[in-house]
Design a protein around this nucleic acid. Structure first.
Lengths: 216, 216
DNA sequence: TAGATTGTTAATCGATTAACAATC
DNA sequence: TAGATTGTTAATCGATTAACAATC
């Protein structure tokens, strides 16, 4: 089963870490110093013990009766996720979705730095979207040699997904954040993460139908 | 623990169903009639037995040696998700993200029908984005009385998330698909589904750091 | 028939929850 | 001190995987 070399454990925990980080930063902005697992659990609708278990993974220690140091937690989580330093990326496909990602302030909170956008539309080439310069997709290989980004955000039309993926891989990209609806194929040493909006909608629909006998 | 009344089981299965659906429709378009669990498993990088277990939930039956009927599977999955009929929704916050959702063809495949957009920007009010009319957010309550949509897509700035949520809830919305980075608070009988881009990025980052000793 | 694929039943694995001792 | 909160250890729960019988 080596097709999934990158199966990491504690995946549910990793998925929750950014949510903690978001709340912790809000608290830090309000000059709070300590927070309890119960407080965070309440916010995220989970159990306090789960919060403590999650923090165990990041090796942060709390103080009985006081809680966890907010700044300590932020540092530990960032450290664990590798979000302490800028994460350089490029984005391919500057359509409406691509543009909205370029303008998504939250991602900058996580020190994701999108160095360049690429698009095949000559109208877009040469412009800047949310301050990010857009280049022709034909220059991908050339520019990736210079930019040293290892991560690519894929927001092209589904039909182009695999072609562009192949190009990204041969240009040295090691991770692809896939926003298309295609299941792209990559060599074993390249990592992909598929962002699937439909799965969230499915969960919502099933919950709603469980909730109401007649869904309309 | 009644705050999570809508904890459904088989959640991982539900999350995978749209991915099956997507592949099945591609196959149907190619006039394929049957598919094996092994084929689908290969596509999604999971185990064949997991595919069969998932299908068990939708009560679809396969035929030994032949596989599953593609049209039968599509029907069963749609039936299970309640995607056999149009799912009426509204969208609040016609910014770049909101607009990209309005233009997202894939969602129409799932029969999600966005009846109206709402925005506070007078420039946008009265226009149509991807064919969807945009109304003033002040008319939310009034129009929701008429539209009979039960689902709202929330793409407003984080700062407005809770206010708009309260308005949606008091206007009769039963489910909120939350694209903001806020953890919105709703009454126990309203369902929310938070779409968290950061958690996908976290998984990707952790996988990449596991992969490469030095991440750059 | 022989062989491929489903479907069932049991085993394993991992995530969450519970209980409670430690501790500030 | 007493009480609140962490952290540890064990129990439970659910999801995935394995084994193999059923079946077309």
């Amino acid at each position: 089963m080596d097709r999934n070399v990158f199966k990491i454990d504690k995946l549910p925990t990793v998925r929750r870490l950014p949510a903690y980080l978001h709340i912790l930063r809000q608290l830090a902005r309000c000059d709070e110093k300590f927070v309890s697992s119960a407080f965070l659990a309440e916010k995220l609708n989970i159990e306090p013990i789960l919060v403590r278990k999650d923090f165990e993974l990041t090796r942060v220690a709390g103080t009985p009766r006081v809680g966890y140091s907010i700044s300590g937690l932020i540092a530990s989580i960032e450290e664990f996720l590798g979000w302490g330093e800028d994460l350089d990326a490029i984005l391919v496909g500057v359509g409406q979705l691509g543009a909205s990602i370029l303008g998504y302030r939250e991602l900058m909170d996580f020190r994701l730095r999108i160095l360049a956008g690429f698009d095949s539309d000559p109208e877009k080439v040469g412009t800047a979207v949310h301050g990010v310069p857009v280049f022709a997709v034909t220059r991908l290989e050339e520019l990736l040699g210079r930019l040293r980004a290892r991560l690519a955000i894929l927001t092209v039309p589904s039909a182009d997904a695999q072609n562009i993926t192949d190009l990204l891989v041969s240009s040295g990209i090691r991770g692809i954040w896939n926003y298309t609806s295609e299941n792209i194929v990559v060599p074993a040493d390249v990592i992909t993460q598929k962002e699937d909006l439909a799965s969230g909608l499915a969960v919502l629909c099933v919950k709603m139908s469980r909730n109401m006998p007649s869904p309309l």
